[in-house]
Design a protein around this nucleic acid. Structure first.
Lengths: 187, 187
DNA sequence: GTTGGCATGTAATTGGTTACATGATTGG
DNA sequence: CCAATCATGTAACCAATTACATGCCAAC
């Protein structure tokens, strides 16, 4: 009964490798310099993660020749790794994801290009679009019922939360429109 | 050279105890049912955390008599705990907090009422207000320089990030106005 | 020739997750 | 009386953080 299921960091690494082979150091640089997720770039997290994924058969190392005879070890997804990544991207979006893991949903979406087709991208976004209004209504109704009992700074912090979810909603609508436009313009 | 500095979960617990004594179970309920942060409500995290804080002298248990002879053990902040919480609330806001830990800043702000005075609350918010424009400009400039090299879903996800920071900025301005209004209306 | 960035790792510690375990109390 | 919820814990496992360690190569 081993767990052994990949962590978010593992999926983030696999996502980065979906198109090009990268070295451990390059992966660290990307986590350190880019905005995607808040994954640690420390060697103590990245290198063990790569090892884990190699051990699971999701990654493999390739030795590429550079000019000047320098050979660099890089990692790329195996077929199994690609399947695992696609499985992750295809998981049904649930209310818990909306409440606590929007960042993970955004990361998934960012990785979808060239891995799943635009209609499936839209279906992914529509799941989010469907779930967000309920979440927003819950928050608003909680606020209406409890705001007079919460001190001012708590109330303002709560309103911040509502605004963030409204921003998610505006974004997802906009994103759906953009992808749909792309689909119709191609056909 | 021991570390022993409280974790975010520790501060969140201390924040909850800033006004009333709560039992471990009550703390778990709050983490499970409220929106504050994404702290785990599992017994395996809460009870050890309470023990840690007790061991550090930041919390103490009080036995309150309920009617019907039932005695319930609750926890409250010690003087040392209150100082630690105030120290945490008073830490200078830095660019890293803006980039990766806005949720923690919001949690701090929610706990400020009745712990620090409104002018200090405003100063806290103004630090955020000062740092956000730089962050937003960085993101916008990165987008302008790199957007044509990023695939569509990645681009849209990036734009989501920018919108979130713009929402933070609108909120912080609004919150400052609200607190200032409260200050002037009282004098 | 030495500083700084490239590049890869390991070890100790620690905190969180998961799962299990237990007993008391309350409502139907 | 029995189920659900209240209430508190423990133990195994695992991953991340922190800190240390090493060697290469390029530039100044």
């Amino acid at each position: 009964m081993k767990k052994n299921s990949p962590t978010n960091l593992d999926y983030a690494i696999m996502g980065l490798l979906r198109e090009e082979a990268l070295s451990g150091y390059q992966i660290r640089q990307i986590f350190e310099n880019s905005e995607m997720g808040n994954y640690s770039s420390s060697p103590g997290s990245i290198y063990p993660a790569i090892r884990r994924l190699e051990g699971l058969g999701l990654l493999e190392s390739v030795t590429q020749k550079e000019r000047e005879g320098k050979a660099k070890k890089r990692f790329r997804l195996t077929g199994k790794g690609r399947s695992a990544l696609l499985g992750w991207l295809g998981e049904k979006v649930n209310p818990e994801d909306i409440s606590k893991r929007m960042d993970e949903l955004l990361l998934k979406f960012a990785f979808m290009e060239n891995l799943i087709d635009p209609p499936a991208q839209v279906r992914f976004l529509q799941q989010i679009e469907d779930l967000l209004p309920k979440k927003i209504e819950e928050l608003e109704s909680f606020y209406d019922q409890h705001s007079q009992m919460i001190p001012l700074t708590g109330r303002l912090a709560f309103l911040h939360g509502i605004e963030i979810f409204r921003t998610h909603f505006r974004w997802v609508q906009e994103a759906i429109t953009t992808i749909l436009k792309k689909i119709t313009s191609k056909s």
